Simulated assay, not measured.
Amino acid sequence: MARIVMDDLHKVYPGGVKAVTGISLDIADGEMIVLVGPSGCGKSTLLRMVAGLETITGGTLSIGDRVVNTLEPADRDIAMVFQNYALYPHMTVYNNLAYGLRNQGVAKPEIERRVQEAAAMLQIGDYLQRKPRALSGGQRQRVAMGRALVREPSAFLFDEPLSNLDAKLRVQMRVEIRQLQKRLGTTSLYVTHDQLEALTLADRLVVLNAGRIEQVGTPMELYQRPETLFVAGFIGSPAMNMIEMGYLRDRGAAPSTLPAGTDLVGMRPDDMLLSAPAEPHLSLSGRVMLLEPAGAESHIYVSLDGNDQPITVRIPGLPTMQEGAAITLHVPLGALHPFNTASGRRVSG
């Protein structure tokens, strides 16, 4: 296990294209950090810099007590699980797991111990003599994880490992990865574009945008108190509603409790209530545009009076109103998120 420290990391490609700009991050020994952000935000580039698959243009990267900027991938004591499983098709599962250890000159009894332990942990013991083509996608991903596991590295790096699996299998594998990481206590850096995956796996989330860190924190910290407009819009599904302060003033609904400088107010869909709460709140009226049942919950799309931009409300169960019906929404004042559009940041007050 090892602490990973990134100090002002930069990656600039030929032609001056900046992929990563000034990333500083301290990953504690045994911590599970998830990098999340839209396509092209730099998350996979950053992971590959840690792995040694991308050169570092500037800054310092340490794994354990060593600066590894110029070390080859094989010398960094890390193991990586890729999006494509990258298994050797002509080898059995056993040999896929053992191959790297043999190359390192590990003794046969030790190879046998590590392979059998990994196979038992990942429940692939029955497949050790099969070739990858005889396995399902989930089984192949377990083999890929097993190949990383047998190396007993200081850190695991995961590059969107579940994106090729179907939805049900992704849920199952997500649980297995989290349980495995907690059991082993191995420092882990995980890249995904899937928000739910990020929220459920991470000890801390790192939201990236255009090669920079927007915010770092626990999943609930980022959900409950996003520090930038980007994080507010990116974390949470359905996305946070944004309503201009001018609209609230025009409707006589602008709360005096919001700090000076607020010109945009965020409201989570699940904080918009159909019944007035006992606590101080603001009320907004409109009409139901669309009802969207989604199993245990429903989404209601509402056009506010005097405002063309629809907002989303999330409620448990099935809605009782009809499309086109008048509706009044109530939002507790403590659930409002004040932002300033010029700075793109949360307003403190």
Rank of each mutant, 00 (worst) to 15 (best):
S163F: 05
S163R: 05
N164K: 07
N164I: 12
L165Y: 13
L165F: 12
A167N: 00
A167F: 00
A167G: 00
L169S: 04
L169E: 09
R170I: 08
V171S: 13
E176S: 11
E176C: 13
R178P: 07
Q181V: 08
K182A: 14
L184S: 06
L184G: 04
L184Q: 06
G185V: 14
G185H: 13
T186E: 05
S188I: 04
S188W: 03
L189F: 07
Y190D: 13
Y190T: 11
T192Q: 08
D194G: 13
D194Y: 11
Q195R: 12
L196H: 06
L196E: 11
T200E: 07
T200D: 10
L201Y: 05
L201W: 03
A202Y: 06
R204A: 14
R204K: 14
L205Y: 03
L205D: 00
V207D: 12
V207S: 12
L208P: 12
N209L: 12
N209P: 05
N209M: 05
A210F: 08
A210T: 14
G211M: 06
G211N: 06
G211F: 11
R212Y: 06
I213R: 04
I213C: 08
E214T: 09
Q215V: 13
Q215R: 12
Q215L: 12
Q215I: 11
V216L: 11
G217P: 09
E221V: 04
Y223T: 11
Y223D: 09
Y223M: 09
Q224G: 02
Q224Y: 02
Q224M: 08
R225Y: 03
P226M: 05
T228Q: 03
T228M: 09
L229F: 03
L229G: 14
L229D: 04
F230P: 10
V231S: 07
A232V: 03
A232E: 05
G233L: 01
F234Q: 06
F234C: 10
I235T: 04
G236M: 04
S237T: 14
S237E: 02
P238V: 00
M240W: 07
M240V: 10
M242P: 01
M242Q: 09
I243D: 11
I243L: 15
M245K: 15
G246R: 15
Y247N: 06
Y247S: 07
R249Q: 15
R249T: 04
D250G: 04
D250A: 15
R251C: 13
G252V: 04
G252E: 12
A253L: 07
A254T: 04
S256K: 12
L258W: 02
P259F: 12
G261W: 08
G261I: 08
L264E: 07
V265S: 01
V265T: 01
G266H: 10
M267V: 08
M267G: 03
R268V: 05
R268D: 10
R268W: 09
R268K: 15
P269F: 00
P269H: 02
D270L: 02
L273E: 00
L274Y: 01
L274D: 00
S275N: 04
S275M: 02
A276V: 01
P277T: 03
P277I: 00
A278D: 14
A278M: 03
A278Q: 14
E279N: 00
H281P: 00
H281G: 02
L282D: 01
